[in-house]
């Protein structure tokens, strides 16, 4: 939802970044205000996934120029865990399996870490169980998944739902969804999208990184950005996504 006087949450200016000695991002500008939903689209290799990893602080990706402020703080001066505590969340394109750590234990540990950061009381296991059983409805997940090791033996769709469950529990200010729609069948896509929609408020924001327009039928963006060659080459409303679906990316690439 676009509201002119809502506060700026994330402001990225002229961002350059490299991975493995290869320049990927070559001057990205993006402003996200509270309450907004942004979609970043682009072909493979356009830099959209790199952009999400750089924002979350992945150690393999190095910022070589530009700035990013998140909630008024210099984002790149913060460690990944500090970014998370400041309210940034990345839903992983390829969720990590962690044998030996139960889903509920991880959720509680992460939740209580944020509670402490916010000056609030930690929840004991019983209190947390009540909370998580409410949150798990958001992604229509069977509670038996809570007792299992994080993502171990989960299907692709279950892993993505598990990412959104983490988002539901941690209530980030800004959620970056990195190709959350990839590998999902239509039912799982609907569930994941409903989950994200139910978490949207005027005080938080979502940036979706996606290859396909399909997800945007369910989570309707306020802005659609097209990334190509490490830069945002076109910004428009949700109709831009439909145009991309109809015409492909080539016409924009030529224009850029």
């Amino acid at each position: 939802m676009i509201s002119k006087d809502s506060r700026i949450m994330l402001e990225v200016k002229n961002l350059h970044a490299e991975v493995g000695g290869i320049d990927i991002l070559k001057g990205v500008d993006l402003t996200v205000r509270a309450g907004e939903v942004h979609a970043i689209m682009g072909i493979n290799g356009s830099g959209k996934s790199t952009f999400s990893k750089v924002l979350a602080g992945h150690p393999d990706y190095h910022v070589t120029g530009g700035t990013a402020t998140f909630e008024g703080k210099d984002l790149f001066a913060l460690e990944p865990e500090e970014r998370a505590r400041a309210g940034l969340f990345l839903a992983f394109q390829y969720p990590v399996e962690i044998p030996g750590v139960s889903n509920s234990a991880l959720l509680r540990l992460a939740y209580n870490t944020l509670q402490t950061e916010r000056g609030l009381e930690e929840l004991d296991p019983l209190e947390f169980e009540d909370l998580v059983h409410e949150k798990i409805k958001v992604v229509e997940m069977d509670p038996s998944f809570l007792g299992r090791s994080v993502n171990e033996g989960f299907s692709g769709g279950e892993k993505k739902r598990n990412e959104i469950l983490q988002m539901a529990v941690l209530e980030p200010k800004l959620a970056i969804l990195d190709e959350t729609d990839s590998g999902l069948d239509i039912d799982a896509l609907r569930i994941v999208a409903n989950g994200v929609n139910s978490l949207l408020t005027p005080d938080n924001a979502v940036v979706m990184v996606t290859h396909y327009q399909r997800l945007l039928n369910y989570i309707v963006p306020d802005y659609v950005h097209v990334m190509d060659g490490g830069r945002i080459v076109r910004t428009g409303g949700k109709e831009l996504a439909l145009e991309l679906e109809a015409r492909g990316y080539d016409w924009l690439r030529a224009a850029a």
Binding site: H58, E81, A84, I98, L109, A110, T113, L170
Partner: peptide, 20 residues
């Protein structure tokens, strides 16, 4: 990185993975 992105410190994350 995943655990840190969920707010855990480096030490906490390493301990959790070692413990696991």
């Amino acid at each position: 990185f995943f655990l840190k992105s969920r707010g855990l410190t480096e030490e906490r994350a390493r301990n959790l993975l070692t413990h696991a």
